[in-house]
């Protein structure tokens, strides 16, 4: 779709805002609707839009598959590591209360970290899956 000038320019304008919105959804999920799952999908859709308009090769340069593939696993590891951090601090698995000075502060920190892990895995998985489908020759 490289010859569609309107699509190219409009998507160039849109992509930064899509990414910004994904970050907003990620970190505002504690107070309004949103969270890691939604943010991950929105962030992935920015990359997918880029891949659709500017071609898969360019998208692979922006988000190298080797890095994205590792991020899929990294998100799960961040989540699980937060659980073990609770264990090391003397609480139960995934008990965030012991992570901060007060239980509520700990909960805040724990939820922020695991939502980040969820967002990483979801975004990286969706980008990986899109790359694989789009890169398959007929």
């Amino acid at each position: 779709m490289k010859h569609h000038r309107v699509l190219r320019i409009v998507s160039k304008l849109l992509i930064p805002f899509i990414m910004l919105f994904a970050l907003y959804v990620q970190f505002h999920g504690d107070f309004g609707p949103g969270g890691g799952f939604q943010a991950g999908v929105i962030l992935a859709s920015a990359f997918i839009l880029y891949g659709l308009i500017f071609g898969l090769e360019n998208a692979r340069k922006v988000a190298p598959p080797a890095v994205v593939t590792r991020l899929v696993a990294a998100g799960v590891l961040i989540y699980a590591a937060t659980g073990y951090a609770g264990l090391l601090k003397g609480g139960n698995f995934l008990d965030y209360g012991v992570l901060g000075a007060t239980p509520v502060a700990g909960q805040h920190l724990g939820i922020l970290i695991i939502e980040f892990g969820v967002g990483t895995t979801v975004a990286a998985s969706m980008i990986t899956i899109f790359f694989l489908f789009a890169g398959r020759e007929r």
Binding site: D30, G32, V76, L94, Y96, V104, V118
Partner: peptide
């Protein structure tokens, strides 16, 4: 207990964090 206004996030990430770990897996 958790200090978040969005109950869905509290339940998803804190009360049922173990479930969500499974879903991410």
């Amino acid at each position: 207990e958790v200090g978040l206004p969005n109950v869905v996030t509290s339940v998803l990430a804190s009360y049922r964090g173990y479930d969500t770990l499974g879903e991410v897996t």
